[in-house]
Amino acid sequence: MLLKDLLKGENLYLTSFKEEDLSIFESWYNNIAFLRSYDMVAAFPVSQIELKDMLKDIRQAHDRYIFAVRIKVDNRLIGVTGFENILWNNGTAVIYIGIGDTLSRGKGFGSEALALTMEFGFEELNLHRIQLNVLSYNEPAISLYEKLGFKREGTYREFIHRDSKRYDMYLYGILRSEWEHKANK
């Protein structure tokens, strides 16, 4: 029996982070525009030492996975994806993605990377439900999530304060049966 080569897509593959990736990862964590779309916490620079510690913590945790997103043709690191807050007894997890390489945005890499991560979650981790949060101003991400089958399930009104304005945070989710139905089309 030939098993599927999980974590490999047409243009990308997902790997672990390597020591030599830290300088690129650090540049993303020093890009405030990236951070304001990627995370809900205050956008502040993070050093390589802090990122190394964060990666170590994730690798040692039992409720989180992190992957480096790489382009196949040149092995270039362009993003990060993974799961956090995995509740094994319920089969649920929060998924995340960020394409840190600005030149790689808008080319379908985010869609492919997120689809690979979802496939890993449903097929390898045996998850029943994958969910995520997105800020209302992040329209490209919202479009991506809906294209991949996520359903908007709720809104935290005026959740985040950025640039003297309040923005909603949307809650999205997809069930295994919905993902299977979409994958088999």
Rank of each mutant, 00 (worst) to 15 (best):
N31M: 06
A33N: 15
A33L: 15
R36V: 04
S37V: 02
S37Y: 12
Y38R: 04
Y38C: 03
Y38A: 14
M40F: 15
V41D: 08
V41S: 06
V41R: 04
V41L: 08
A42E: 15
A43I: 06
F44D: 12
P45Q: 04
Q48R: 12
Q48M: 11
E50W: 03
L51G: 02
M54G: 03
K56F: 15
D57W: 07
A61M: 01
D63L: 01
R64T: 04
R64I: 01
R64D: 04
Y65K: 08
I66W: 10
R70D: 08
R70K: 14
K72L: 13
D74I: 03
D74Q: 04
R76V: 05
L77C: 01
L77K: 00
V80Y: 01
V80H: 07
G82T: 07
E84L: 09
W88A: 12
V94A: 14
Y96T: 05
Y96N: 05
Y96Q: 06
I97Q: 00
I99N: 08
G100E: 01
D101E: 15
T102C: 07
R105C: 11
G106E: 07
G106W: 07
K107I: 06
E112F: 12
A113N: 05
L114H: 02
A115C: 09
A115K: 15
A115M: 13
A115V: 05
T117Y: 07
T117G: 08
T117L: 10
